[in-house]
């Protein structure tokens, strides 16, 4: 390292090359540090509740320790816990299955569209649901699926069927969850693929056409491989979401009737912690969920790095 005087004497161009600590840059990070400390790390201390025999009389600081008893209790004794875990995974998998493939299929179709006005219109339309909150969508769904005077049941009745109480039956509720979730997200999901599709070399299409490939063949042999890395990446990165079945959506739509098939970890954590004031148990479950999520996240990033050479950080 050169001394300050030396540096001052150096021509500007060379000075640029030798990197010095820029204290202003460091200062700019200070708000970030404060934010992380307060809103990301301070709450972690609250997790001790999960290991406590937490009582309101003693509070966080004086409650006695239970070690892993809260966890043991949940896993072995709590009635219906495993049903909730199963619900969570099943709903998340169903959503993943359809929610993952739908944008790919739609992107491939959009890619085939040559009329740019049509293409843009469709794109604009399919993005809309992404921007609407679940509070509002739940309102819309309730209204449309109303067994008495909802639009959907009106159509069903016109076609000679019997009205279905979609949101009140264990047979149909999950269907509503999956369809509405896919509907909300598929348009948004296409963006990433559409971007990737523009990167495919047009020469490949030309060559294929000369070889006599039809459109379907071109789609399968050129377009699809062209976006395969991004598909893989998306798939890998969606692994950690397996325990997130969608709190906002389910919370705004479900009711006691469908707890059996629709109660998931997040809604359960909320009800346990809030309605039953089981603060310790609720925190413990949240912790387990978060831990599993972290493991999956790290794993998926590792896989992403290995499989498609994608580095997140």
């Amino acid at each position: 390292m050169t001394s300050a005087e030396d540096r001052a004497l150096l021509p500007k161009k060379r000075r640029k090359k030798s990197v010095r600590t820029d204290y202003m840059l460091c200062a700019m990070l200070i708000p970030g540090f404060i934010y992380l400390a307060i809103f990301e790390f301070a709450p972690l201390f609250g997790l001790v509740i999960g290991f406590q025999n937490f009582k309101l009389s003693t509070g966080v600081f004086n409650s006695t320790w239970r070690g892993f008893d809260n966890f043991r209790y949940i896993f072995t004794m709590y009635p219906g816990f495993w049903n909730i875990v199963r619900n969570t995974v099943e709903i998340a998998l169903l959503k993943l299955c359809f929610g993952f493939t739908a944008p790919i299929v739609v992107s491939l179709m959009l890619h085939e569209v040559t009329h740019s006005g049509f293409k843009r219109t469709v794109q604009t339309l399919v993005y809309i649901p992404h921007f609407v909150s679940w509070v509002i969508l739940a309102g819309i769904l309730r209204s449309m699926l109303d067994p008495d005077n909802g639009l959907i049941n009106h159509v069903i009745k016109l076609l000679g069927g019997d009205p279905v109480y979609f949101l009140g039956s264990n047979n149909t509720f999950r269907g509503v969850l999956v369809v509405s979730d896919v509907w909300k997200g598929f348009g948004w999901g296409t963006i990433i693929y559409m971007a990737a599709l523009t990167g495919i070399d047009p020469a490949l299409y030309e060559a294929a056409t000369i070889d006599g490939a039809n459109r379907l063949q071109r789609a399968i042999h050129i377009t699809l491989p062209g976006i395969l890395p991004i598909i893989m990446l998306n798939l890998i990165l969606s692994i950690p979401g397996i325990l997130n079945a969608g709190f906002d959506q389910i919370f705004n739509l479900y009711n006691e009737r469908v707890y059996k098939t629709a109660d998931v970890l997040d809604t359960f954590i909320y009800r346990l912690g809030i309605l039953d004031s089981q603060y310790a148990l609720s925190t413990a479950i949240g912790m387990v969920k978060s831990a599993i999520g972290s493991v999956l996240l790290v794993a998926s990033y590792k896989i992403a790095e290995k499989a498609v050479g994608y580095k997140v950080f």
Binding site: K55, L56, S57, T58, G59, D276, S277, Y279
Partner: peptide
Amino acid sequence: LEDDLPDLLVLNQKQFRELQAA
């Protein structure tokens, strides 16, 4: 949880027991 309760409380059995014990 915060012990920031109002003067007048309307409780269920569970809340009553817990707060009374505390």
